[in-house]
Design a protein around this nucleic acid. Structure first.
Length: 117
DNA sequence: GCGTTGACTATTG
DNA sequence: TCAATAGCCAACG
């Protein structure tokens, strides 16, 4: 392990702060993917891993400001590994906003997907 | 600057 | 639909 136990809290101008900013733009009842956030920031979806990493370090305070639950993978499936942000909680939050989540934690991106529009 | 890690993505079978 | 592989990026010690 090379130190990186948890990402930086969120420094202004930092990459994480930009990620949070994009996630905040996701309208209620919609979901986006890590690749989309990466594309909006970098112009490509190759930094998706860094996006997920940024959300992984979300503090409880940030979790209330940043709708991290509206971010899923490109397959339209929830792949959270955090205990604090369990997949069950993410599914509940999405359903509370009107997003249909399958029993396999799958969401129809063609219907609820948001790509910066 | 190197090595390591991670809530990823695209491709192939 | 699922599994395995390769590639890419940012940050910390």
């Amino acid at each position: 392990m090379a130190g990186r136990s948890t990402p930086r809290e969120n420094e202004p101008g930092g990459f994480f702060d930009r990620v949070y900013d994009v996630v905040r733009r996701v309208p209620p009842g919609r979901v986006t993917t890590y690749g989309t956030v990466s594309q909006l920031l970098m112009g490509h979806s190759r930094a998706a891993r860094t996006v997920g990493w940024a959300l992984h370090g979300l503090s409880p305070q940030q979790a209330m400001e940043v709708p991290w639950w509206r971010v899923i993978n490109a397959q339209g499936r929830i792949s959270t590994s955090c205990e604090t942000h369990s997949s069950t909680e993410q599914r509940s939050r999405l359903e509370a906003e009107g997003v249909a989540v399958d029993d396999r934690l799958r969401v129809d991106l063609a219907r609820f997907g948001w790509f910066g529009g």
